[in-house]
Write a protein that binds this DNA or RNA. Structure first.
Length: 447
RNA sequence: GUGUGUAUAGCUCAGUUGGUUAGAGCGCCGGAUUGUGGUUCCGGAGGUCGCCAGUUCAAAUCUGGUUACGCACCCCA
């Protein structure tokens, strides 16, 4: 049979894994520094935990796991008869793959509320699955790096999370613009335009501003049934540059003013230290997810057309659906896959691979192979990433292997070297070669 | 869910109006070279042309179906 992968998933070669780990390690180290603790949740959740949390579209994109055993025996006969897949699902599938990390986290918090201390700060770096049709930069399996705080509505955390963004992207050397807004400001806009009941339609249209332009947003709102006068009003407010300018529009909108106040409090905390990246209020920032209720964030890479590489915000009642009311959360997510693409395009990955082999030993015959195995053990003991070709095969073959493996150094061990207790150390890039004893060899790599 | 494209060697791809034994480059194996890779030369292995039908004297090539994967839309990271 011809080996291949199902659509939307990928293998990673060692060099890719090294690069991906560089991103994950950088993110993780910043999370830890800010006092966040790791948790892990299972690949599978109960389907009942997942369904209905991501909208109708989301339900369709959930991967469902078929029940074990003779699952058709318990299948809903009427749904089976009618060939109604949607209705059939609950009777043949009780589990699904997680679609994001936020809903499982909400479940986790409710379930373990007596074992954790609030405010609870957690981070989670795990893959998620979506049955979306894949295309460039979009996969059915991808990693999310989430960091959230639950159990406090202090705006200090908003400032802290934006600082994490700032610090991570500075550490990765990726120049970004961090956009900040507040869902209450958007609610104020809807109120000012007299379309509070069409808040969702409005935000979804605004969310596309970057992509479809001003006229596109007007059309989108029109298509979604918002009247022309309200559209004009919304577009006028979108022109606003700062919070002061915005305030007059919200004279009669309590929620709008509350949004402005929250943003000001956020800035009081955040502005105590200068940011390394551009951080700015962006009134056109909307974020599609409708569970956000307060501050919202989005990160865009500078100089690369790729969309957002991170986003997040405040949600007042995430655990509510699991029966735990009034617990506020705020969190942000890093789009690791897209960060990878940006770093690849801008050539930002470190040249030196800290997980790659440093030296390969090559032996000429059986006695030297035995000696070389002793050497490779000594090198490893000294913390040097070393390996030995498994047989004293033809030099050409061994050298070719070294070349293909991109090992920077090769240590050759033949009869002469055995006699002098040295090896011939060859620099694979320059071709230069020198005889060296074990002690000097170790010092060369770990001085 | 909608639209659209692709499928030939391990990989990337040629393959003429349908016509002998389906090719190239790279990779792989062996040799030139029994103590030296990345350059060169020589030789070799490797294919159910995605799958199933149909048209035809004859199909990788034309037609229909099917499966897989890609790209775009919706949506999203």
């Amino acid at each position: 049979m011809r080996p291949s992968l199902p659509k939307g998933v990928r293998d990673f070669l060692p060099e890719q894994v090294a690069k991906r780990n560089f991103i994950f390690d950088t993110i993780r180290s910043v999370f830890i520094k800010y006092g966040f603790r790791p948790i892990e949740t299972p690949v599978m959740e109960k389907l009942s935990t997942l369904t209905g949390k991501y909208g109708e579209e989301g339900d369709r994109l959930l991967f469902k796991v078929l029940n074990n055993g003779d699952y058709l025996k318990k299948a809903d006969p009427s749904a089976l008869e009618a060939k109604d897949s949607t209705k059939l699902i609950p009777s043949i599938s009780k589990r699904g793959l997680r679609y994001d990390l936020t809903v499982p986290f909400a479940r986790f918090v409710v379930q373990h509320q007596n074992e954790i201390a609030f405010p609870f700060k957690r981070y989670q770096i795990q893959p998620v699955w979506r049955a979306d049709s894949p295309q460039k930069g979009r996969y059915q399996e991808f990693y999310q790096c989430d960091v959230d705080v639950v159990g406090s509505d202090s705006l200090m955390y908003e400032a802290e999370l934006v600082r994490i963004y700032d610090e991570v992207f500075a550490a990765l050397n990726v120049p970004v613009k961090i956009k900040v807004s507040n869902r209450k400001v958007l609610a104020g806009m809807a109120e000012a335009a007299g379309i509070s009941d069409q808040f969702m339609e409005m935000t979804m249209a605004i969310d596309k501003l970057d992509k479809i332009g001003e006229q596109g947003v007007r059309n989108e709102m029109g298509n979604r049934g918002i009247d022309a006068i309200a559209i004009d009003k919304v577009m006028t407010i979108l022109e606003v540059k700062g919070l002061e300018e915005l305030e007059p529009y919200f004279k009669d909108s309590e929620i709008g003013l509350k949004g402005i106040e929250e943003l000001r409090t956020f800035h009081q905390y955040f502005d105590l230290e200068e940011a390394k990246n551009e951080v700015s209020f962006d009134i056109t920032l909307a974020r599609g997810l409708n569970y956000y209720t307060g501050c919202i964030f989005e990160v865009a890479a500078k100089g690369v057309e790729i969309g957002s590489i991170g986003g997040g915000g405040r949600y007042d009642d995430l655990t509510g659906v699991f029966g735990m009311k009034g617990v506020s959360g705020v969190g942000v997510s890093f789009g690791a896959e897209r960060i990878y693409d940006v770093m690849q395009e801008l050539d930002l990955f470190p040249k030196k691979d800290r997980s790659a082999l440093e030296i390969l030993l090559i032996a000429f015959d059986a006695p030297t192979h035995l000696k070389a195995f002793e050497w490779v053990g000594a090198l490893r003991k000294a913390g040097i990433r070393a390996d030995l070709y498994p047989t004293p095969a033809k030099l050409k073959k061994q050298m070719k292997y070294a070349d293909a493996s991109k090992v920077p150094f090769v240590g050759l061990l033949g009869g002469q070297e055995l006699e002098n207790s040295t090896i011939s150390l060859k620099n694979m890039e320059t071709g230069a070669q020198q005889n060296i004893n074990l002690e000097d060899l170790i010092n060369k790599f770990r001085p």
